[in-house]
Design a binder for these strands. Structure first.
Length: 293
DNA sequence: ACTGTACCCTGTAGGC
DNA sequence: TGCCTACAGGGTACAG
């Protein structure tokens, strides 16, 4: 479900509610998600103050006062929901309230001040792990991550260096979190459309024989950044499950140029091409064969 | 070193 | 109505 814009939208919704609060209670309602929860998870959370809430790639990271980071990934269907004080002050209240989902509500945190945070994840591809803050950058989950696409490190030269000689297609190249961290199926498709690049083209087209960035690489950077910025401004894309921390849907799905539009007409004025669906590495790709080469 | 496939899990949509 | 298959915003472990 959630790519960078959705995770960032969730982060922005949660941060003012959790930052500075203490975790007063933690209810862990099953032993695992994708991976087992950390040992003695609830006991390690309770009493900690949440110092801040960051995002790196598609990870949400709560920095805890004791020096550990709580790292959370939403997988495909993970969702955080804020229950303000008074809406459901006890677990019993919540269980009987509208919107409660006892089968898929896996984690409930009660914060000082009374707000509660519920993590719901039907498919359980999400996970939560804890690690000392100082060890985060060396942790296997973070060590190999590529650049943040909205940061200064995403440049045409960087893409060219990483793509040089690679005959893998551009779709797979951009989906690789070791190259650019945070893109997923939707925003790769949309960025390639904006850059006028076919997802089928070999990634090495981003570099010339000397390894210098090509015009294609230079177009790709603002295409990636533009689509992510606009998607964040629209509070993400909702296809099926995605909701922000307030329960609201995103809005960017109404602006898709190609994603999930197979058989429909290209929206570029005067194009008239038909959006095509192909499969790369088991994931659907969408593109306009007239606009993207 | 790369590339493609299977798989993790559940819900839903569409065909018959 | 019901059953069955395919597919879904992610990521990883393999086999080749």
């Amino acid at each position: 479900m959630p790519e960078l814009p959705e995770v960032e939208t969730v982060r922005r919704g949660l941060e003012p509610v959790v930052a500075g609060r203490r975790i007063a209670a933690a209810e862990i309602r099953r032993p695992d998600l994708r991976f087992p929860f950390p040992e003695r998870f609830a006991e390690r959370l309770v009493g900690q103050r949440i110092v801040g809430l960051e995002r790196r790639a598609k990870y949400l990271i709560a920095a805890l006062s004791g020096g550990e980071d709580l790292v959370m990934h939403l997988g495909m269907t993970g969702r955080f929901t804020i229950l303000e004080k008074g809406r459901a002050d006890t677990p019993g209240d919540y269980a009987n309230s509208v919107g409660a989902d006892p089968v898929h509500d896996h984690v409930m945190l009660t914060l000082s001040g009374g707000a509660r945070i519920v993590y719901n994840d039907p498919r359980r591809f999400g996970f939560m792990v804890m690690m000392p803050h100082a060890e985060r950058s060396a942790h296997p989950l973070f060590r190999g991550l590529g650049v943040e696409p909205l940061g200064p490190e995403l440049t045409a030269d960087y893409l060219a260096a990483r793509a040089r000689g690679k005959k893998a297609n551009l779709k797979s190249f951009l989906m690789d979190q070791r190259v650019v961290a945070g893109l997923g199926n939707i925003y790769v498709a949309e960025a390639l459309f904006r850059a006028g690049l076919s997802p089928n083209r070999a990634a090495r087209a981003l570099a010339d024989r000397r390894g210098e960035a090509t015009e294609r690489a230079r177009k790709l950077v603002p295409a990636i950044q533009g689509v992510l910025e606009q998607a964040i401004a629209a509070r993400g894309s909702t296809l099926r499950d995605y909701r922000d921390a307030s329960g609201a849907s995103g809005g960017f799905q109404n602006s898709f140029a190609v994603y999930d539009r197979a058989g429909e007409t290209c929206r570029r004025a005067g194009c008239g091409g038909e959006i095509r669906r192909v499969v790369h590495a088991g994931r659907a790709s969408f593109y306009c064969p007239r606009c993207q080469r």
